[in-house]
């Protein structure tokens, strides 16, 4: 199975990413793990027809948000959905410097490195990025990932098991101020802050290790 993947010829940057994640030694010690809180703004919610407009991310390590370790790019659009412009504010020919999808992915993978992905509704953001990777003839992300929605649900003995918490709801519950909502970087920062607060709570009830956090995550089908 493993050798089957190897046979396919991938570009250098993709192989570098895969080998970094596979060889990462940091996951066993929580303080060493680099989390990347990320959020994508997209043209819509359809994996097949919609596109990623921008990716914003900031790193969290050893219970701190490392502002200097950030990522913020905007992607050139072939698909344009004017309905979502009013949410994310990114126009087709806006003033932000835009990259091609391929260039954006190269930079993103380099930034992501061996980090654990942290997002709110991770499956959506990772799913959108995976679709982009596929269009470029690459594989899916192999990074480990955690989801603030599921970490929260693991801790509250919520009778409403199926409930999906929105970022706004969790911000309300955990008293996180929501500036720059609906910009990729703004939502990434909110997610990172939520994560710090969740960890504080989580630590009281559980020994903190990555596997538990990841296991809080119900994998994307």
């Amino acid at each position: 199975m493993f050798s089957f993947f190897k046979k396919k010829k991938y570009p250098e940057f993709w192989n570098t990413y895969v080998s970094k994640v596979e060889n990462c030694q940091k996951y066993s010690t929580f303080e060493n793990i680099r989390f990347v809180a990320l959020d994508t703004e997209t043209t819509g919610f359809d994996f097949n027809n919609d596109r990623v407009l921008s990716i914003g991310a900031v790193a969290v390590q050893a219970n701190k948000i490392i502002v200097s370790d950030y990522f913020e790019i905007y992607i050139e659009q072939e698909v344009f959905n004017k309905e979502t412009v009013k949410i994310h504010g990114i126009r087709r020919n806006g003033t932000e410097t835009k990259l091609s999808e391929k260039e954006a992915l190269i930079q993103f993978l380099e930034y992501l490195d061996d980090a654990v992905i942290l997002a709110h509704h991770t499956s959506f953001d990772v799913g959108m990025i995976n679709m982009a990777l596929e269009r470029q003839g690459l594989g899916s992300l192999i990074s480990k990932s955690v989801d603030t929605n599921y970490i929260h649900k693991k801790m509250v003995s919520d009778s409403n098991f199926g409930k999906i918490y929105s970022l706004d709801e969790l911000s309300e519950i955990y008293n996180v101020k929501t500036h720059d909502r609906h910009t990729a970087s703004g939502d990434a920062l909110i997610t990172a802050q939520l994560f710090l607060k969740l960890l504080g709570k989580y630590r009281k009830n559980y020994a903190l290790n990555l596997n538990d956090l990841i296991n809080s995550h119900y994998p994307f089908s």
Binding site: V58, V67, G186
Partner: peptide, 10 residues
């Protein structure tokens, strides 16, 4: 690269 988060902290 634009850094929205740093701008807010600023």
């Amino acid at each position: 690269m634009k850094n929205t988060i740093a701008e807010r902290i600023f």
